[in-house]
């Protein structure tokens, strides 16, 4: 096994604990999307925030932008489509996405 990214045993915290809370935020689950991403039509969106609260992956930021829209985060969205299904105004729809466009920095951390 290549030992890249492995932790020497002496550096482990007591009992292999993790002392940095929420360290999963560095994990790019957006990588799991396949071929499409959800896109919000700002004309139709009523800024209700259901996309934010119904997202299992917290791929919409908690703080709306200056205009009140909840921002979608490419870094975490796994592409499940719940936001599209649950949007009361059908303002969110799939858009084709190329593999190379999937990757970007997290916007909400």
């Amino acid at each position: 096994m290549a030992d890249e990214g492995m932790t020497p045993w002496k550096d482990l915290a007591l009992g292999c604990a993790m002392t940095e809370p929420g360290s999963s935020k560095s994990f790019n689950t957006g990588d799991w999307r396949s071929r499409h991403r959800p896109v919000t039509d700002r004309e139709t969106c009523i800024k209700c925030g259901l996309c934010w609260i119904m997202c299992p992956d917290m791929a919409y930021t908690a703080d709306p932008d200056a205009e009140g829209y909840y921002l979608w985060d490419s870094y975490y969205c796994k592409g499940c489509g719940i936001c599209i299904e649950e949007c009361p105004k059908d303002a969110i729809s799939w858009q084709e996405e190329k593999e190379e466009d999937k990757y970007g920095p997290a916007c909400g951390t």
Partner: peptide, 10 residues
Amino acid sequence: PEVYTEAKKA
């Protein structure tokens, strides 16, 4: 597998 052995060693 990347950490189990190290945890047991510790």
